[in-house]
Each structure stands twice: as C-alpha cells, then as structure tokens.
Design a protein around this nucleic acid. Structure first.
Ligand SMILES: [Mg+2]
Ligand SMILES: [Mg+2]
Length: 223
RNA sequence: ACAU
DNA sequence: TCATGT
C-alpha cells in the first residue's frame, strides 16, 4: 500500500510507467535486473521525471538489487494512467479482492483513491471465491460510507460480477449454491444482501477501467 | 466475448 | 493453466 500520497516512477521494469502504490510499483521492479525507479511527493514531479527519464535524476533513485530476471509481461495499462482524460477526478473509494491459490484463502480491502491509504482489510477467509471477495468488499465500502453519512462518495471496483450482484442485490454464486463456502462467509454474504435490500439508494458504484488506468489502487499485487 |  | 462469474 502506498504511504499516503506518493507517486512511483518506474523507468526500467516489466512495465515502465507511473504508479500510485508501492505494491504495484514493486511488481514492476522486484526481481527485474537493471530496474530503475524512484518515488515522488507530487504527481507533477513524477510526470516530469517519467518524461525526462532516469538520467535526469540528481539523487537517490532506486536500482535493482540482486536478481537477474529480464523478462516481463505484455503491457496492459498506459504508461501514465493519471494523464487519461477519463481518469477519476476527485476522491473515491477503491476496493479489491485477492485469492491466494497457495494458501487457498481469499481477502479483500478498500483504499482511498487519492492517497492509497488503507481504509479496511478483511480476511483471509478459507472456502471463498474471488467474486465473493469482490462483492463483500464492495458492500463493505457502501455500508461504511452510509455509516459516515456520506451518500455521494463513489466506490470503484474492477469486478463486473460484483457490480452485477450489487445491482440485483443478490449474489448469483455457484459456489454458494453448491455449499462450497464457509459458514462465516455465508453469513457475511447474507448480511451483505440484506444490507443492500435495506439500502436501495446506496452510493454510486463505478467500474474501474483497468486497461486504461492500470490496476485499481486497492489491488493486492501478486498476479 | 467480456470482467476478474 | 485453472477457477469464478455476466
Ligand atoms: Mg479485482
Ligand atoms: Mg486485484
């Protein structure tokens, strides 16, 4: 997670560009031979540095330490998502879920768009699914905002499934229907559906455009 | 196909 | 490559 308000420039890495969280920037440079990166306090500084290149830095930019790998992955987002004309303006909450296929556990969290600051984190939970995590994260954010008396703050998710379940106030989960979900999560799902039915006019839910803006700030990294 |  | 979903 970002320590409120930092901007990370990666000049050399798997996918060079501008990142809002250390988790996402680290993915680009960890284990990448010859990686070059640096953090900045403001967007303007970061954008200027990204455009100018690593050679323009007078001090303390990061260099890859030990490792060796040079391969990357196909480019997804643009190098500077913040420059996209449709990038979200103003404050918002961002949520995401992750599935740990090694530990077989799901977790989810919510962060502020502007700073990357963690607002909530739940889990890990056994016997879950990606979609159940995305759904619970989204409803958790909506309920939290309602409790604060904030009816206008938008909530971003990258999950079409979670958006559909919230819209219908019903989670169409195969795993749930077939009894593969833990009692704890079943209870949370039931509670979430009931909350939605009791609060038909919840805050606006918006789709995070990962292809245009890069990973949602609430993303967990490992993928 | 699209989103995870 | 697999699983969860619209
Ligand atoms: Mg997600
Ligand atoms: Mg993610």
């Amino acid at each position: 997670m970002a320590k409120a308000g930092k901007y990370y420039v990666v000049w050399v890495g798997r996918e060079p560009g501008l990142y809002r969280t250390w988790a996402s920037a680290e993915q680009q440079i960890k284990g990448f031979a010859g990686a070059l990166f640096k953090s900045f306090a403001t967007q303007a500084e970061a954008e200027a540095a990204l455009a100018a290149g690593p050679g323009s830095q007078s001090s303390a930019s990061g260099r890859a330490s030990g490792s060796s790998q040079t391969s990357g992955r196909a480019s997804a987002a643009k190098a500077n998502p913040l420059a996209a004309s449709n990038y979200p303006k103003g404050e918002a909450l961002c949520v995401d879920a992750a599935w740990n296929s090694v530990q077989k556990q799901m977790e989810y969290q919510g962060v502020w768009l502007s700073s990357g600051e963690l607002l909530f984190h739940q889990g890990p939970f056994a016997m879950g699914t990606n979609n159940i995590g995305e759904f619970l994260a989204l409803v958790h954010a909506l309920a939290w905002l309602d409790k604060q008396g904030d009816a206008s703050m938008p909530v971003y998710t990258d999950s079409m499934t979670a958006m559909a379940w919230v819209r219908k106030k019903k989670a169409n989960s195969q795993s749930l229907a077939e009894g593969r979900i833990s009692p704890e999560l079943v209870a949370l799902m039931t509670r979430a559906e009931h909350w939605l039915q009791a609060h038909p006019k919840h805050n606006p839910v918006k789709k995070w455009l990962t292809k245009e803006w890069g990973e949602i700030p609430a993303d967990f990294g490992r993928k």
